[in-house]
Design a binder for these strands. Structure first.
Length: 436
RNA sequence: GCAGGGGUUCCCGAGUGGCCAAAGGGAUCAGACUGUAAAUCUGACGCGAAAGCUUCGGUGGUUCGAAUCCACCCCCCUGCACCA
């Protein structure tokens, strides 16, 4: 079967998902003709992908849904080198075994978002170490290097700040990154007739390099498309929380935190993000926006976004867990939580820790609560205590209780004899379980 | 190498002998108001429950007393030179 959705590019445009593309109309017509093969690369620079990777990843999914064949490339080779694009300083190299370990995990993550069977246009995952790892230097210099012009590379905006900046510079290693990525495209073009590369807008230079190489080596015409860098209306960096990046790995960012992250989206950004991070149609999103504009008070958009995005990344179960905790923490009363509910909360991703009864003696609350990660410094706990902003099982404690930790966490005051739910401020919750 | 400028608490940035744990702004956290929003206002913001303790590139020194003065060292920036 070879039917494709000819409106794909038009839809991506409407969603604001296209930053740049080669041959505008030409590419659109080319994609409308039939199934094409495209790829997007993900370098293993950490043991998990984060929110910034999600947009291009979902674009891959969108292409597959429209009938095309996506390839997710894991950069086992490029990850060993480090992409200098728009980076201020040279990066620290990671050891080959670390990168290989990360590459495995990223391969798994990426695989969640594309379908490998049960469809006419199955996806593929490849690792560029397969071909780059075997290449020898002389072949590289003769077959690849010869096609790249130093003059052009130096003029690229993506490396300019590194070249101009005094005291930073760029090593030959990172400078060569673009050639490796170019090789990937040319190789995938030969192997799988891959003719389109998508990526973040910072990848434009590298993508164009690949297009050139594919033309010179394979006499093939290929295309490139980039998605915009995600920005927030207030100018702060997207995808960060107090505790750092929002990861896709549930071990690193729990579905609950993930869900909460989206719930906190600013009104000014939420409709844009619905276009980027969900598969709701443009019309559905417009309808939500219209309803929100109509209604007084709290918009529904954040809730929809949180629900859709969490389901995409963590599945129905992850979403259910996140909602369970949210419900318990922000609307339900503690009395409604059963013993098994409390047990479940920790498993569902609510931050939790164990308490040793003996260790509470002479331990100030400030110390305990900052050590368990509820606050960055005990100073913050102190401030909260002074404002009745710390609740233990629903009861406020104050600075006077600071040195009475053992009493506050006495077994007879625990829920079901062992649980304490501590709330600090409006948003931070932590579950303690007594162990003796 | 020479000359000049500089390194202050998360960031920017004041501070040139005591009144300095160090102005101001940003970021962050909490409170009020709210929609678990934004804006605004309030408070906190080196560590510590407190007593108190530890900071101003490093090491020594002068002094009753140093972020502030002196010596040496390290690093960054800007010119010039050297090397091409």
């Amino acid at each position: 079967m070879s039917t494709v959705d000819g409106n794909l590019i038009q839809e991506l445009r409407e969603r604001g998902l296209i930053a740049q593309m080669t041959g505008e109309d030409e590419l659109e017509a080319y994609l409308a003709e039939g199934p094409r093969t495209l790829y997007c690369g993900f370098d293993p620079t950490a043991d998990s992908l984060h929110l910034g990777h999600l947009v291009p990843l979902l674009v891959l999914t969108r292409f597959q849904n429209a009938g095309h064949n996506p390839i997710a490339l894991v950069g086992g080779a490029t990850g060993l080198i480090g992409d200098p694009s728009f980076k201020a300083a040279e990066r620290q190299l990671n050891t080959p075994d670390i990168v290989a370990g990360w590459a495995d995990r990223i391969r798994n993550q990426v695989s969640q978002f594309i379908k490998f069977e049960g469809v006419d246009n199955p996806a593929r995952v490849v690792n560029n170490l397969e071909w780059a790892g075997e290449m020898n230097v002389l072949d590289f210099l003769r077959d690849v290097g010869k096609h790249f012009s130093i003059n052009n590379m130096i003029n690229k905006e993506s490396v300019q700040q590194r070249l101009q900046r005094e005291g930073s510079g760029i090593s030959f290693t990172e400078f060569s990154y673009a050639l490796l990525q170019g090789m990937d495209f040319a190789e995938l073009n030969r192997r799988y007739d891959c003719t389109l590369q998508v990526g973040g807008s910072d990848q434009w230079g590298n993508i164009v390099g690949g297009i050139d190489l594919a033309r010179r080596q394979n006499k093939a015409q290929t295309f490139g498309l980039t998605v915009p860098l995600i920005t927030k209306a207030d100018g702060t960096k997207f995808g960060k929380t107090e505790s750092g990046a929002v990861w896709l790995d549930p071990q690193k960012t729990s579905p609950y935190s993930f869900y909460q992250f989206w719930l906190g989206t600013a009104d000014a950004d939420v409709y844009k993000f619905l276009h980027y991070f969900t598969f709701l149609s443009v019309e559905e999103i417009a309808k939500i926006q219209a309803e929100d504009a109509e209604a007084e008070g709290r918009p529904q958009a954040q809730g929809v976004l949180a629900r859709e995005a969490t389901r995409l990344v963590h599945g129905e179960e992850g979403l259910a867990a996140a909602q369970r905790i949210t419900e318990a923490m922000f609307s339900g009363s503690l009395a409604e939580l059963g013993e098994s509910d409390l047990e479940q909360l920790a498993q569902d991703g609510l931050p939790s820790s164990e308490l040793m009864t003996e260790s509470l003696i002479d331990k100030p609350l400030t110390g305990l609560l900052s050590e368990c990660g509820m606050a960055k410094a005990s100073r913050e706990v102190k401030d909260a205590l002074g404002r009745n902003a710390v609740l233990i099982n629903g009861d406020a404690v104050s600075m006077d209780d600071n040195m009475r930790t053992a009493e506050c966490f006495a077994p007879e005051r625990a829920l079901f004899g062992r649980f304490f739910l501590v709330k600090l401020g409006k948003k931070k919750n932590h579950l303690f379980e007594l162990k003796s």
